[in-house]
Amino acid sequence: MTDHETLARLMADADVRQYDCYQCGKCSGGCPMADAMDLKPRGVMRCAQIGSLGRILNSNTIWLCTGCGACADRCPHDVNVPALIEEARYEAARRGLGRHDSEVLNKAFVANIKAFGRNHEMLLAGLYNVLALKPIQDMASVPHMLKKNLIGIKPNRIGATREIAELIERAEKWDDPMVATGRSQTPEVKK
């Protein structure tokens, strides 16, 4: 499949059309992650318009987008940029373009859910810091967050931990990362 065809498929899956965007920039203007992105949401649409799939897949944007939806909500033409970014994320994963730190976070997150049925923030942060080789990142915030009860030492378990773990295991058996994750979380990155 050529890049052109792949892009067309990603656009179709995301239900986004190139011609809907007239480059007003309202998406980038309000994006909370824009400062850190090397390709801002409007840029993603621009690349889609000129058929530059590579730029989208190699950008850090697809890993930084939180999917908050502010851009899509404000877009005058109702372009669902986060949906396109999500599709691009899967494609990047298929091509082995995943980022090490994103991959680490995803793995730690899934392990966390398997263990407790619900995310344990403190453990996730700790695991991420160790695996991503950034041991002291955000450490200064820990006392404040503990004091305000934003994170806790003990995990919050749910009743059906076993069932949740089984669900994830079943999903992991699928080859296609898109099906495997039900399109709700980042798939495993192929080595």
């Binding site: 007003c24 920039g25 309202k26 980038s28 203007g29 801002k40 409007r42 840029g43 404000r74 005058p76």
Partner: peptide, 27 residues
């Protein structure tokens, strides 16, 4: 060049946040 994404109050001023699409930077 850019459609303002949001307006919020900061002290006595109203902050118009948008993208300068010709620069590709938030303003």
């Amino acid at each position: 060049r850019g459609r303002v994404s949001r307006i919020y109050k900061e002290g006595d001023t109203l902050v118009c946040q948008g993208e300068d699409t010709l620069l590709g930077k938030q303003v």
